[in-house]
Design a binder for these strands. Structure first.
Lengths: 138, 138
DNA sequence: TATGCTAATGCAACATTGTTGCAAAATAAT
DNA sequence: ATTATTTTGCAACAATGTTGCATTAGCATA
C-alpha cells in the first residue's frame, strides 16, 4: 500500500511545506530515479537550490528516498519502498542504469545473491549496479 | 605478470612524461583505489590539477585504470588487471568500500553471480559495491 | 483564530570539483 | 639537431555542493 504525500511527511515527523510536497510528488510521479538537476529543472525557479539539497538530505535521513551508486558516479535518488521508512537497511539493492537514455530503475524483484567475502571483511550493504540498454532503448 | 611503469605507458602508445610516471607509480604502490584528491595530495604541488584530471581520463580510456562506483558517489580509480588493457569489459567487478577508513578494495577473486533481469533489459556491465568494515577496521 | 515557539526557507558567500581554449614546454620522430 | 606532435600549465569558467544567518512559514497552544 502506498501513502499519500501529506501522510508520508507527517508519518516522518516533517512539517508539510511547499517544497517538500512538490519534490515528493516528483518522485512519486517518476518511474525512475532523479538527480538533483532533474528536480531543479522540473520545479522551475520555485525553490532555492539550497532548499532542494536540504530537502533531499532530509528525505534520505528519514528513509523516504535513497541514493543510488551509478557507474558514472552521478548522484541519483529514488523512492524507498515502505519497508525503508521502518528502519530496514538497503541490503542487496539492485539498480539498472540505461547507457542510452540515462534512466535509472530500481529492480525491486531482482534479488542480489549473497557473496562470500574474504576473511576480515564484513558487509553492511551491497549495491548492485547494472548498466546496459533498458526496455525503451532496445 | 606485471609490467613496469615505462613499459605500461609505451604499450599503450602514451608519451612517457613525469606526471604519467608519477601517477601510475602511485597506483602501483597503493593497495586500494585512489580518488582524484588522493593523487593531488600525494603528488604535492608537482602537477597542475588539470593535468591530473587529463591523465586519469587518458588512463581510463586506455584501460590502465577503471572507475569504481561507490555508495557515496565519490569518484575513485583503481588499476586494471592485465586483461583490461587487452580490451576486456569489466563485467562483474566486485569492490569493497570501508565505511570507517574509506579504503576501497578490488576483490578480484570474489565472483559476482549472473542476475536474471526483467524482459527488455540487457546488461553490458555489472558493478557490485559492498560497504562495511574492512580487515583493518574490525 | 490569534499568539508564540520551532522549524524551514532564501540569500549571500564560499569551497570543491570538473571542463575548455590556448600558448609554452616537453617528448618523439626524422 | 631539427621539426612535428603531444602534453602541460595557466586562466577562466561552469557545475555542484556547503554554511551562516536573517526572514518566513508551519505548528501547537491557548
Amino acid at each position: 500500500m502506498r501513502y499519500g504525500i501529506n501522510e508520508t511527511l507527517k508519518k516522518n515527523q516533517l512539517s508539510v511545506t511547499d517544497s517538500r510536497k512538490k519534490i515528493l510528488e516528483l518522485f512519486m510521479r517518476s518511474n525512475g530515479a532523479l538527480a538533483h538537476a532533474d528536480i531543479e529543472h522540473q520545479s522551475g525557479t520555485e525553490f532555492d537550490r539550497v532548499t532542494i539539497y536540504r530537502t533531499l538530505q532530509t528525505f534520505v535521513e528519514k528513509g523516504i528516498i535513497h541514493t543510488i551508486p551509478t557507474a558514472d558516479n552521478s548522484v541519483r535518488y529514488a523512492l524507498c519502498k515502505d519497508e525503508c521508512s521502518e528502519g530496514h537497511h538497503h541490503d542487496n539493492h539492485v539498480h539498472f542504469m540505461c547507457d542510452d537514455c540515462g534512466t535509472t530503475y530500481c529492480l525491486d524483484h531482482v534479488i542480489a545473491p549473497q557473496l562470500s567475502l574474504p576473511d576480515g571483511f564484513n558487509a553492511t550493504r551491497t549495491d548492485v549496479v547494472v548498466s546496459g540498454k533498458c526496455k525503451n532503448c532496445e
